[in-house]
C-alpha cells in the first residue's frame, strides 16, 4: 500500500518513540535493580535485628514530601498530555510547576538533613541513620539529575522544539519522574512509618 509522505513520517516517529520508550523502560529496570540492592540490605539487617535498629524520624516532613512528589507526578503527567496535544503553553506551565515542586521537595529534604546534623546525627551514628542517608541521599541524587534534565527540556519547550509528532524527550522525562516518585512511595513507609 502506498503511504503518503507525512504518514510515513508519523510512522517513522512512532517507531522511534517506541524504541526510545523501550530503552527508557530498560533503564528504569536497571534503576529498580539498583534500589533492590539497598532494599535487600535494609530488609535483611532490619529483620535480623527484629526491628530494634529503628530510630524515630520526622514523620510530618516525610508525609509532606510524599504529597509534594505525588503532586509533581500528577503535574508531570499533565505536561506530557499537553505536549502530546501540541499545547506549548500548557507544557511549559505544567513542567515548570513540576520543576518547582521538585525543588521544594529538595528544600524539605535539606531542612530534614539540617535538623539531623544539628542534633549531631550523621550517617556514622548508627545503622538506621546510615540507611536513611543512603536511601534518601541516592534518591535525592536521582531527583537532582531529573531536575537538571527537566530544566534543559523546559528551555527547549519554551523555544518551541516540541510539537505533536516530536515529543519523545518529554515523555521520557515523564517516565523517569514517575519512577523517581514510585521509589519514594516505597521508601517513605519503609523508613518513616514502620
Amino acid at each position: 500500500m502506498e503511504m503518503t509522505a507525512n504518514a510515513t513520517e508519523a510512522a517513522f516517529h512512532r517507531k522511534r518513540a517506541d524504541m526510545r520508550r523501550f530503552g527508557m523502560w530498560l533503564f528504569l529496570g536497571s534503576e529498580v535493580m539498583f534500589f533492590t540492592g539497598f532494599f535487600a540490605a535494609y530488609i535483611v539487617i532490619r529483620s535480623a535485628s527484629a526491628g530494634s535498629i529503628v530510630q524515630p524520624l520526622n514523620k510530618a516532613l516525610g508525609t509532606l514530601n510524599t504529597v509534594i512528589l505525588i503532586t509533581s507526578s500528577f503535574t508531570m503527567a499533565l505536561a506530557v498530555l499537553a505536549s502530546k496535544k501540541g499545547d506549548r503553553k500548557g507544557l511549559v506551565n505544567w513542567m515548570g510547576l513540576t520543576w518547582i515542586l521538585g525543588v521544594v521537595f529538595l528544600c524539605v529534604k535539606g531542612v530534614e538533613y539540617a535538623q539531623h546534623f544539628s542534633e549531631g546525627i550523621y550517617p556514622s551514628t548508627d545503622i538506621f541513620h546510615a540507611f536513611y542517608f543512603l536511601f534518601t541521599g541516592f534518591h535525592a541524587l536521582h531527583v537532582i539529575a531529573g531536575l537538571v534534565v527537566m530544566g534543559v527540556l523546559w528551555f527547549r519547550a519554551r523555544r518551541g522544539d516540541f510539537n505533536e509528532t516530536y515529543n519523545d524527550p518529554i515523555e521520557m522525562m515523564g517516565l523517569y519522574w514517575h519512577f523517581v516518585d514510585l521509589v519514594w512511595i516505597f521508601l517513605y513507609p519503609a523508613l518513616y512509618l514502620l
Binding site: 529496570g29 529498580v32 533492590t36 532494599f39 535483611v44
Partner: peptide
C-alpha cells in the same frame, strides 16, 4: 522486562 525485574527483586530479598 518489568516482570523480570520484579522477580529478581523478590529472589534477591
Amino acid at each position: 522486562v518489568f516482570l523480570f525485574c520484579a522477580c529478581l527483586f523478590t529472589i534477591a530479598v
